[in-house]
Amino acid sequence: TIDDAFRAIERAIQAENEGRYREALKHFLDGGEMIVTAAEKEASQKVRNLLLHKGKEVLEWAEHLAEWILE
């Protein structure tokens, strides 16, 4: 659900702030994927587009974090 997705993102932010970057990455990926999944089930085109945009933002952040971890 969207609530689960945002809880995962909150955990990711907390982990990132505490320097637990790999854990943060996992939570960002989980949250982003949950948002995209919820968007695919959404009946309203406007809400679907907003959710897809937010999911994409979260997944892009996860990608940047992963690249930073690997440096």
Results as ranks from 00 to 15, higher is better:
Glu71Met: 12
Arg48Ala: 08
Glu10Met: 12
Ile69Ser: 01
Leu59Tyr: 09
Ile13Gln: 04
Trp68Met: 06
Ala38Ile: 12
Val36Arg: 08
Leu52Gln: 04
Leu25Trp: 10
Val58Trp: 12
Leu51Gly: 02
Trp61Arg: 07
Glu16Thr: 15
Glu71Tyr: 11
Arg7Glu: 08
His27Met: 12
Trp68Arg: 07
Ile9Gly: 00
Asp30Lys: 12
Ala12Leu: 03
Arg22Pro: 03
Lys46His: 14
Trp68Leu: 13
Lys56Ser: 05
Ala62Tyr: 03
Val58Ser: 00
Ser44Cys: 13
Gln14Asn: 09
Phe28Arg: 00
Ala5Asn: 01
Ala39Ser: 06
Glu33Phe: 14
Ala38Tyr: 11
Trp61Asp: 01
His27Cys: 09
Glu16Pro: 01
Lys41Gln: 08
Ile35Gln: 02
Ala8Lys: 11
Glu18Gly: 06
Ala66His: 08
Asn17His: 09
Glu42Tyr: 10
Ala38Ser: 08
Glu23Ile: 03
Glu40Asn: 10
Lys56Ile: 05
Gln45Ser: 09
Leu29His: 04
His64Gly: 05
Arg48Phe: 14
Lys56His: 05
Gly19Phe: 03
Glu18Ala: 05
Leu65Ile: 11
Glu16Cys: 15
Ala12Gly: 15
Ile35Arg: 00
Ala43Leu: 13
Ala5His: 01
Val36Met: 14
Ala62Gln: 05
Thr37Pro: 03
Glu63Ile: 11
Gly55Met: 11
Arg7Gly: 04
Ala38Val: 09
Gln45Met: 09
Phe28Ser: 01
Gly31Ile: 15
Ala43Arg: 13
Ile9Pro: 00
Leu52Tyr: 09
Arg20Phe: 07
Leu65His: 01
Asn49Tyr: 06
Met34Leu: 15
His53Gly: 10
Lys56Ala: 10
Asn49Glu: 14
Ile9Phe: 08
Val58Cys: 05
Ala38Lys: 02
Thr1Glu: 08
His53Leu: 13
Tyr21Cys: 12
Ala43Gln: 11
Arg22Glu: 14
Asn17Lys: 14
Phe28Ile: 04
Ser44Gly: 08
Ala62Phe: 06
Gly32Lys: 05
Ile35Pro: 03
Glu71Pro: 05
Ser44Tyr: 04
Ala5Met: 05
Ile13Cys: 14
Glu40Asp: 06
Gln14Trp: 06
Glu33Ser: 13
Gly19Asn: 04
Lys41Ala: 09
Gly32Cys: 13
Glu40Phe: 14
Glu23Arg: 03
Glu10Gly: 04
Ala8Trp: 10
Val47Trp: 10
Arg7Ser: 04
Arg20Leu: 04
Ala8Asn: 05
Asn17Cys: 14
Lys54Val: 15
Val58Gly: 00
Leu70Thr: 09
Arg48Asn: 04
Leu50Pro: 03
Glu10Val: 09
Ile69Glu: 00
Glu18Gln: 07
